[in-house]
Design a protein around this nucleic acid. Structure first.
Length: 593
RNA sequence: GCCCCCGUAGCUCAGUGGAUAGAGCAAUGGAUUCCUAAUCCAUGUGCCGCAGGUCCGAUUCCUGCCGGGGGCACCA
């Protein structure tokens, strides 16, 4: 049971005592300043329920609590004092119970510890990244990857059994373009012979194709012809395709490793693109689909959710062409059913940009019409675009922020920063690059996750990404600083296991505890809403509250041994929260910075 | 035309049906004999896009409008 729920429970009991009603779920907030108390109960919902002014209720509850019999000696009540302030009931918590919970029990309840009574965990697939194999990853993929990993981690924390999937778009005319350009102008070069990453190598040929095709439009026909040869299984075409894809995968693997992107299942569109046709045929036989006047098999979109078209007729989408060739949605029908069946999924989360919202609305409506009950728990995690100052990124023109370049640049910046404070040059090159990698990628991931997914991001490469303020490194730094304190304090014999938390209670300590105690609810909410930015802002606030505490109070130089132990205990609890939270965002922690 | 997202401080963004709407950046000044100054403290600005409606109370919910972005299948 989380701390906030314990508080709510205690208040609910008081309300039952006083009014003989079962209150609606209570909202526990924080008073505007620490002097008022640790937590606040809003009495507005009760006012509605009891048909009494909220100010009267707050006052009556405060009086009732003051008059009630204290618990037996040696047993702590959570709420020590309750004061009415207008429509609010402000609570001052029992110091010992408050900090004991914060420091000792925060991770003993869901979402961090399994509830023995919980039903079996749902099986959830998070599908993310979904790169094309004709070019390297760019900033948009970084946002997708950061979101996918964080959402998967949050689902796991919330008790799900998660499978992370990557559906690689390894076929199609865009890949043929890279192949064609390489065949025509590549002179047998390879990534090795040119000394570049395989994905960058293939991407260069894609850009080259686009440039050449502007001068010579017949190249487009050449790419189409190559796609036909690919579909016919032409050996030479397939060989080239496999070789170039292998180069790309080798490049991707390096990028994944740098960013900590991992997958439990990989699907290739070359395997799945013919799926779904049979399901469409079956659906046609069951009248889920109809054949239109042009011979297309079409699906009529439910009017209640999709409205009507400009002519006032129900909207339709084609799910299979007259010649039996499939479409985007055809293969997604097949692929989704395959994934759900293979992994016995209860839910599917698709991390894909907002420009594909219509597609997923259609896909889910079709799956539902086909009779799949799980279709209702499919979710398209739609996120906003990443813009550059000059507008939308365009791979064709090479107008993108390359993922590897950005990682390299941020890592280099971090590295300079580390060296500038390593004045005695004691750090080895290996140590510097290890720290720089964690800080550089941490900055990027935090930057991409700190805004809610629906928000577009305007990325300014000139300003780049900062290490100060609302950033990943700020949170990492607070953690590293704590590690320094813990190390030093332990050397001095300070022992948080001996803490009884009775010496704590100044404003900074209370505010910090009030923050830490809300971590489980924050994680739960972030998981439920698929919104990692809630965790990012929470971590920043936590680090900030810690820094404020740090600035005014010393652990090592505390007045008494008891206080040293208590403060070390609170400090260590903060470290656990920061570490867990950063890991949820797939950001690494460092013990020294 | 229809659908989705966004509109809050100079900039980038949080936020909530309820206490005085907050952070970061940028600017200015200050703090280190002391646990890491990638830190902390102080100083300012807001018709919360506009107009209605619901409500005891709306920046938050509803409707309409304005502005920006994305999408509207037979490309993926």
């Amino acid at each position: 049971m989380t701390f906030i729920r314990l508080i709510a429970q205690e208040i609910a009991q008081v309300i039952r005592d006083r009014y003989n009603i079962a209150p609606e779920p209570l909202k526990i907030g924080t008073p505007p300043n620490a002097a008022l108390g640790d937590m606040a109960v809003e009495c507005f919902p009760l006012a509605k329920q009891l048909k009494t002014a909220p100010t009267v209720i707050a006052a009556e509850l405060a009086t009732h609590m003051a008059a009630s019999t204290p618990p037996p000696a040696g047993e702590d009540r959570l709420i020590e004092k309750a004061t009415a302030a207008g429509p609010y009931l402000n609570l001052t918590l029992n110091t010992r119970a408050y900090f004991d919970y914060t420091c000792r029990r925060l991770f003993t309840a869901p979402p961090f510890a399994l509830d023995p009574d919980a039903p079996p965990p749902p099986r959830v697939m998070v599908e993310y990244l979904s790169p094309n194999t004709n070019k390297p990853l760019h900033l948009g993929h970084l946002r997708n990857g950061a979101l996918g990993m964080a959402v998967a981690n949050l689902q796991t924390a919330a008790g799900a059994r998660v499978t992370k999937a990557n559906l690689i778009n390894d076929r199609g005319v865009h890949i043929c373009k890279s192949m064609l350009a390489w065949q025509r102008w590549g002179k047998g070069e390879t990534p090795d012979s040119r000394g570049v990453k395989g994905d960058a190598f293939v991407g260069d040929w894609y850009v080259r194709f686009s440039r050449e095709a502007e001068k010579d439009p017949s190249l487009e026909d050449g790419a189409q012809a190559m796609l036909r040869r690919w579909e016919e299984g032409d050996a030479e075409t397939r060989d080239t395709w496999q070789m170039m894809n292998r180069w790309v995968y080798a490049g991707f693997a390096e990028t994944y490793a740098k960013l900590g992107l991992t997958f439990d299942a990989v699907y290739y569109e070359s395997d799945t693109y013919t799926l779904g046709k049979q399901m469409v045929e079956d659906g046609l036989a069951r009248n889920v689909f109809i054949r239109d006047e042009n011979g297309n098999i079409v699906f009529t979109l439910p009017q209640d959710r999709f409205g009507l078209d400009e002519k006032g007729a129900p909207k339709r989408i084609t799910v299979l062409r007259p010649d039996g060739t499939s479409l985007y949605v055809t293969q997604d029908i097949g692929t989704t059913v395959k994934k759900v069946t293979e992994h016995r999924l209860d839910r599917c989360i698709f991390v894909v940009g907002s420009e594909q919202q219509f597609h997923f609305h259609c896909l889910f409506a079709i799956l539902e019409a086909l009779g799949y009950a799980w279709a209702r728990s499919c979710h398209h995690l739609s996120y906003g675009m990443v813009y550059l100052p000059e507008g939308k990124m365009k791979s064709r023109e090479g107008k993108v922020v390359d993922a590897d370049d950005l990682v390299a640049r941020m890592t280099e910046l971090a590295s300079e920063e580390i060296r500038s404070r390593d004045t005695e040059a004691q750090l080895s090159d290996a140590e510097v690059s290890e720290r720089a990698a964690k800080i550089g990628t941490g900055a990027i991931k935090f930057y991409l996750l700190r805004v809610k997914p629906t928000q577009d991001i305007h990325f300014d490469p000139k300003e780049s990404i900062s290490f100060d303020g609302f950033t990943g490194p700020y949170c990492q730094y607070a953690y590293a600083r704590i590690c320094g304190i813990v190390l030093k304090a332990r050397e001095m014999g300070v022992d948080e296991a001996k803490a009884d938390h009775t010496t704590l209670g100044n404003d900074e300590e209370r505010l910090l505890a009030g923050q830490l105690v809300r971590f489980p609810e924050t994680v739960r909410k972030a998981a439920a809403e698929h919104n990692p930015s809630l965790v990012a802002t929470f971590l920043f606030d936590t680090a900030k509250l810690f820094n404020q505490f740090y600035n005014r109070h010393s652990v090592i130089r505390a007045d008494s041994a008891a206080c040293q132990n208590d403060r070390l205990s609170l400090t260590a609890a903060t470290a656990r929260v920061l570490k867990k939270g950063l890991h949820l965002l797939n950001i690494e922690t460092l013990e020294r910075m």
